[in-house]
């Protein structure tokens, strides 16, 4: 059952017709050829498909495209402005925060979402007192990024990169 939707992907309005069964991830990759968001597990366990949906990090593999009409979708392609990388992406490069790179676009989107959440004062499971605001220590970064797996195990460098991006 096809439905028309408009997605604002990385700053561009894209009109398309989606089968109601299509996930946001498949709509991006297969219909719009926006391949920054990666298909890892396709079951919400790995984080490779992370995008910002209306400014919040979500898993594109568990969102139906038909529910996203008129939404803003930001993939790793659209994080930086006018062709230049976002500070998080720059830091990941400088710190070697990747090996194969498959999880990296999801890591980058997730990290940008994390920074906004921390700025808004959201606590995490390791925040000593959730009534207080947070500082993004190494423990906080590890907890807040736990939804993004890296099978190459580049975690130490990812954490180092994000520590720098925060500064």
């Amino acid at each position: 059952m096809e439905r028309p939707v408009t997605l604002h992907v990385d700053g561009t309005a894209r009109k398309l017709s989606v089968d109601t069964r299509t996930t946001l991830l498949d709509a991006l990759r297969e219909q719009l050829a926006v391949t920054a968001s990666k298909k890892g597990c396709d079951h919400g366990q790995c984080g490779a498909c992370t995008v910002l949906l209306d400014g919040r990090r979500v898993l594109a593999c568990l969102v139906l495209a038909v529910t996203c009409d008129r939404s803003e979708v930001t993939t790793a392609d659209g994080l930086g402005g006018s062709g230049s990388p976002h500070p998080v992406q720059r830091a990941l490069l400088e710190h070697d925060g990747l090996q194969c790179g498959y999880c990296t676009p999801g890591q980058a989107c997730s990290a940008v979402g994390m920074l906004d959440e921390a700025k808004a004062g959201w606590p995490s499971a390791v925040t000593e007192d959730p009534r207080q605001n947070v500082e993004l220590t190494e423990d906080e970064i590890r907890e807040r990024m736990s939804g993004n797996l890296c099978r190459c195990g580049a975690y130490p460098n990812i954490v180092a990169a994000l520590r720098e991006a925060i500064r």
Binding site: G44, G47, T50, R56, R57, V58, L59, L62, V63, S110, G113, M114, E117, P123, S124, A125, T127, P130, R144, S146, G147, N148
Partner: peptide
């Protein structure tokens, strides 16, 4: 709530 799932899942 914070001990459940991941940040991406909790956002949905």
């Amino acid at each position: 709530l914070l001990s459940g799932a991941s940040a991406q899942l909790r956002n949905r």
